[in-house]
Amino acid sequence: MINKKKYYLKSVSKKIFWTQFILSLVFFGSLFFGLYFYSSMLFSKASNIDVQKIYPPDYQVFFDLILSLKEPINIFVIPASGIVILFFTFFSWLILRGIVKKTISQIPTQADTAPKETLKVDPELEKRKFLHILSVLQEEGRLIDFLNEDLSDYNDDDIGAAVRSIHKGCNDALKKYVELKPLLDDEEDSIIEVEENFNPEKIRLTGNVVGNPPFKGIVKHRGWKAQNINLPDLKKVQDASFLVPAEIEVE
């Protein structure tokens, strides 16, 4: 965000500079040109003998004074006008830039407004993300069909036959999304030491826990860890509660 403001200020100050430059070029340019034009008219009149004759001889000093200015004006008018233009451009740019800078810093950054946007989540999409793995396990492994069966209606052989297919389907489906690994490398039933600053999210203690770690204990379950998670990109749907569509075969 800060960078964006800097970039904005930079581009605005550039614009200000050029606008001011062109404005002062037009303004001072025409001013100096007018002055120069008027003075050269004055000089040509002052040096004209017919004109001088009209005035009394006392005025001759005045004419000389005017004519003595002719040379310096001819030499300096261009550099002087240039300096004035640059000077004015620079100062007006400095002032305007200062105003813009102050104004920009008062604009709230997007980072300040961002939290409001993240609150805008689509509830259907959230629901779909939550239910997604269920629909995958049903589609590829028929898990929901299986969980909804009343197992007391069947003998173990029939259940076993169905499970073979369900197990493979669900397992293959899961592997596409996540790699499951035991959380602990230690074998089950081995004795390990739980260190002082252990992470209770990684290790759950059971049994006689008295005092502070380190503890010695037997690994009863190694835990599971999900790694290499392959997150799907899910589209918004009309109704996320439709887990798996009904199938109609058109004859």
Binding site: R142, N148, L151, D153, Y154, D158, A161, A162, R164, S165
Partner: peptide, 18 residues
């Protein structure tokens, strides 16, 4: 290698062909 072909509908186990 045992093969089970699941039935297509919701009645999964009774329709399984072994």
């Amino acid at each position: 290698y045992e093969i089970s072909v699941l039935s297509r509908g919701m009645k999964l186990i009774s329709g399984t062909i072994k």
